[in-house]
Design a protein around this nucleic acid. Structure first.
Length: 432
RNA sequence: GUGGCCUUAGCUCAAUGGCAGAGCAUCGGAUUGUGGCUCCGAAGGUUACGGGUUCGAGCCCCGUAGGCCACCCCA
């Protein structure tokens, strides 16, 4: 066992798996751009207050999962690694006066998030999210647009069986009364509640609604529903979101028990779920409207909505259904030589190829030709450029490895010849 | 944060309390300029770490770390 390991809950993404990541990150960036979202990058850490105030102090994310940075001096600020992207982005929106930009401000970001949680498969202390935020639009049309964007991301990533769970959790006008009603509903049953649920009754009543405890099923089924207690504005908004989704043909399932874990959410709340999958990795993305957050972080009242999609869990799901197989593209050409010691010749030729734009590598070790060719073939290279005696006449051998054919090519024509043959091969639909 | 299961070579796994092994992968060789197959060989280990029991521990016991599963929570 090695002396040093990646810290608990983190892992290395090896070159064998990064092609999948690169593909998804590109898809995320392309898709967001297609919808008019522009890239923003905020720091990996923020002042603790940004999250404590933004997310809410009585949330699990803040109470037990914040990754706190030890201060170097007494007077230094208190910092934490970001557990989610939205609060930092909103902080940036306020700080840079983006309210003077054309509204809404539509931004996207993909990067690592950190939560000090107990690790499990699909649950890491450092995990990646593709995030999209539209700030300054009250909806409801943008709510539907952003949910549709999320579903398209999964579809284009190649993941089937993603379901949208939708709910409205009201706003400052109607939620407090609902929370009071819900508390009153459960209170008479307090002593009969399982210990965990009893704790929720005091901490966050809404959480009782999505309890997995079978003992709660009966009680929860008859509990008052937020969607039936929405104020007129919220009810109208929710109905309009649904009408827009219907018009777009985006399927969804109403889930009255859906409560997001961060306090800043208002009205529209949604999660992307993997159907037919048990356990906690069912949620592969989620988001919602947060009309109060900008003001909470020092800006003017500004409506906004966004979502985050977990890339780790998406890739986990893709891998399990064998949809993540990366087509490992080897170098176009590998330069090998009959004289193992003549690394100068090989390096010169490969440098010339690269200057001409050909993706190539040279055998820089000193093994014999047979081994060099063997390695080139296993690399998945299309061509081997073989340097031998004919180099004295300015010629080299150009071997098509998959085809097993070989011809003599003038060094001066080498790059051009490779590009021509390689392009013909690809357009011919050969194996890649 | 709570409970449970697990940890032997880079990977997948063997080894009755009695000499730590195999397959794959890696590297080299098979008469000196031509690959994937085949054959031969080499290297690779403080059996996760620290204690204990025992004549003797990979194996039994305790602790720690890490992974996984169920909760919790979420992505």
């Amino acid at each position: 066992m090695p002396t040093y390991r990646a810290p608990r809950g983190t892992r290395d993404l090896l070159p064998t798996e990064t092609p999948t990541w690169t593909r998804l990150e590109r898809l995320a960036a392309d898709l967001a751009a297609r919808y008019g979202y522009r890239r923003i990058e905020t720091p990996l850490f923020e002042q603790t207050d940004v999250f404590e105030r933004g997310i809410g102090e009585v949330t699990d994310v803040v109470e037990k999962e914040l990754f706190r940075l030890a201060p170097r001096t007494e007077e230094s600020e208190s910092w934490v690694l970001r557990p989610e992207p939205t609060a930092g982005i909103v902080r940036a929106y306020v700080q840079h006066g983006m309210r003077t930009w054309p509204q809404p401000v539509k931004v996207t970001q993909t990067g690592p998030m950190f939560r000090y949680d107990r690790p499990q498969a699909g649950r890491y202390r450092q995990f990646w999210q593709f995030d999209v935020e539209a700030i300054g639009d009250p909806g409801p049309a943008v709510d539907a647009e952003i949910i549709e964007l999320g579903t398209r991301f999964y579809r284009e990533a190649g993941l089937d069986g993603v379901e949208v769970l939708l709910n409205s959790i009201g706003d400052a006008a109607c939620r407090p009364a609902y929370v009071a009603e819900l508390t009153a509903y459960y209170e008479p049953h307090r002593v009969a509640l399982p210990a965990i649920e009893r704790g929720r009754l005091d901490r966050n009543v809404l959480r009782l609604l999505d309890s997995k405890d079978p003992a709660m099923a009966g009680l929860n089924a008859n509990a008052p529903r937020m969607t039936e207690r929405l104020c007129a504005d919220c009810a109208e908004h929710f109905a309009a979101v649904r009408a827009h989704l219907d018009a777009l043909g985006v399927g969804y399932r109403l889930e009255p028990g859906l409560v997001r874990g961060l306090d800043y959410y208002t009205r529209t709340a949604f999660e992307f779920y993997l159907v037919g999958r048990e356990g906690q990795q069912q949620a592969i993305g989620g988001g919602g409207r947060y009309d109060g957050l900008v003001e909470l972080l020092g800006g003017r009242p500004t409506p906004a909505i966004g979502f985050g999609i977990g890339l780790d869990r998406l890739i986990l799901a893709l891998t399990e259904t064998a949809q993540a197989v990366p087509s490992e593209a080897g170098p176009t050409a590998v330069v090998v030589g009959a004289d193992p010691d003549d690394t100068i010749a090989r390096l010169r030729v490969v440098t010339q190829l690269r200057a001409a734009g050909v993706g190539s590598r040279a055998e820089l070790g000193r093994r014999k030709l047979g081994k060099q060719l063997e390695a080139a073939a296993r690399d998945g290279a299309h061509f081997a450029v073989i340097l031998g005696d004919e180099l004295a006449d300015g010629n080299v051998g150009l071997r098509d490895l998959p085809a097993g054919t070989q011809k003599v090519v003038a060094l001066a024509d080498l790059a051009r010849e490779i590009e021509r043959a390689h392009a013909a091969h690809r357009h011919g639909g050969g194996p890649d």
